[in-house]
Amino acid sequence: MTLSYDHVAGDGPAVVLLHAGVCDRRMWDPQWPALSAAGYRLVRCDLRGFGATPAPDRPHNDAEDVRDLLDALGIERAVLVASSFGGRVALEVAARWPERVGSMVLLSPAVDGHEPSAALRAFGAREDELLEAGDVAAAVELNVDTWVGPEADETTRDAVHRMQRHAFDVQLAVTEEFGRIRHEADLSAVTAPTVVLSGAHDVADFRLMAAELPGRLKDARHVELPWAGHLPSMERPAEVTDLLLGLLREAAPAGA
């Protein structure tokens, strides 16, 4: 299966953008023009069941889907920039195929093996309850209220609302659900230098996962953004774009 994606061809370093589970590839709209203008070969995709990619029709593995997309585009090595659930996918790609990942920037990443707090379990239970009752609108509002930080304006909240509603509609429309094939990432195998960004206003579980990652990776550092919630690239897009450009120029300068 081919993931739906956008691709800016060129000779610059390849940068792959992986979206959060509450969004799709449109979450990177604010960063896309600036990163392209800086000379990077950009790829952003919708994982299965998000955006323009259909829901799974068989058991699947998201990391393998990303690897297959890189293969199809002839990209041997890339920088991964990933948000939330996309961060979990990026870590798996970097662990299973370390030679394919030059460096990573992870924004509020999910990490395999994390034991969710009572608060996060309560969120999941409430989401399940609303969806089982057919109240998709309330489930969307629950996600927007939980994952969008205080710096986001109404335009950003509306964008997350549309992406989450679309994902629910796609995923709930299938008559048969197919699970993910899980390969828990062996973080000791990750060789890519990594910068982990988190938000001081994020859900506590994600702040903890971000803070702990440098102790589990060979070459990583953690930066907490004091203003951010769970989706900093959407909450203060211009500031995060500048931050990403600085990190990319450090890790994989275009034109080098």
Results as ranks from 00 to 15, higher is better:
236 R>G: 09
60 H>Y: 15
96 R>N: 07
12 G>S: 10
100 R>F: 13
123 F>T: 03
181 I>P: 01
68 D>T: 13
48 R>M: 12
120 L>N: 12
163 M>F: 09
57 D>T: 14
74 G>M: 07
145 D>V: 04
122 A>W: 12
118 A>W: 02
53 T>S: 15
209 M>W: 07
256 A>I: 01
244 L>P: 05
241 T>H: 01
41 R>N: 02
228 A>E: 08
253 P>H: 05
43 V>H: 00
183 H>G: 04
47 L>H: 04
128 D>A: 15
179 G>S: 12
42 L>V: 00
164 Q>F: 12
146 T>K: 05
156 T>G: 09
117 S>I: 07
74 G>T: 07
23 C>E: 08
86 G>H: 06
250 E>G: 06
43 V>P: 00
220 A>P: 00
208 L>T: 14
134 G>F: 08
157 R>P: 04
38 A>W: 03
83 S>P: 00
235 E>S: 10
91 L>P: 02
24 D>F: 02
25 R>V: 00
62 D>F: 05
23 C>F: 06
254 A>F: 05
201 H>V: 01
180 R>K: 03
142 L>C: 05
246 G>N: 08
242 D>Q: 13
255 G>P: 04
24 D>C: 08
194 T>G: 01
197 L>K: 09
217 L>N: 11
81 V>T: 02
155 T>Q: 15
46 D>Y: 12
15 V>K: 04
69 L>A: 10
226 P>Y: 08
129 E>C: 05
47 L>D: 01
146 T>P: 05
145 D>Q: 14
161 H>I: 01
189 A>K: 07
17 L>H: 01
160 V>Y: 07
195 V>T: 15
181 I>A: 12
68 D>V: 04
177 E>I: 13
45 C>M: 12
117 S>E: 13
85 F>A: 14
135 D>E: 15
206 F>A: 06
67 R>L: 14
88 R>A: 15
153 D>R: 07
85 F>N: 11
12 G>F: 08
97 W>K: 00
173 A>N: 09
138 A>Y: 09
84 S>G: 13
214 P>H: 13
179 G>N: 10
252 A>M: 08
223 V>R: 15
161 H>A: 12
44 R>Y: 00
11 D>A: 15
193 P>Y: 06
1 M>V: 13
1 M>H: 14
104 M>A: 11
215 G>D: 14
63 A>V: 09
192 A>C: 08
121 R>N: 13
